[in-house]
Nucleic acid binder design. Sequence first.
DNA 1: ATTATTGATGCAAATATATGAATATATATT
DNA 2: AATATATATTCATATATTTGCATCAATAAT
Lengths: 100, 100
Amino acid sequence: MNYSELNIEKLTLATEMLKAIAHPMRIAIVGYLDGGVKLTVTEIHERLGIEQSTTSHHLGILKNKGVLSSKRDGKNTYYFLKHPAFTGILDCIENCGCQD
Amino acid sequence: MNYSELNIEKLTLATEMLKAIAHPMRIAIVGYLDGGVKLTVTEIHERLGIEQSTTSHHLGILKNKGVLSSKRDGKNTYYFLKHPAFTGILDCIENCGCQD
DNA sequence: ATTATTGATGCAAATATATGAATATATATT
DNA sequence: AATATATATTCATATATTTGCATCAATAAT
């Protein structure tokens, strides 16, 4: 893809997705959901060790920006990656980050 | 890599790199530098159409977080990707973003 | 030595983001 | 219907980011 043409619309979209992921708790969430895993808000907030409302905020951001989808099942809402390739971003960062 | 273990140090590093890239002008910069291209601050600020000092700030952020390197040559300072795979992040975002 | 060019930095104002307490909503259970 | 559980939302506060003017520093050209 050509990001050198300064297509503002495309840049904005890419930025919003990257910004959505670019937070330690949200990277951890994307990591949890790798491989098609589906988790509830409670499961995620317990694993992260942060408040339920904070967790819900983070999940809302990820869903809003198109990183996650959710599906309600009774009292629970399951969150999962909208596209499996999202964890590729983490792999990429990992590869790039570890060799100076 | 395992982001599900909540390794704070690793999460922080990944977050800082992602945050460095997660800005429209900085995504554009990374795009310009794809394929080993080296550009001066002036060239970049003219292409982006933003102030020189703002451009320098953005380049500083990208360099600081390990995304870019720079090399001075006379009056000019050339910036380039520290690791070629960084543009893979843009490809990944692109792939993930365009299919709802 | 003076001037011009290139890039970096200090600073302040505007804007955006993160967090969690309190509360609302939705569903399930009794 | 009343209560319990799961999730979302509102709101305020704290913190971080973005931007560009003004200025400084380094090198080059005259």
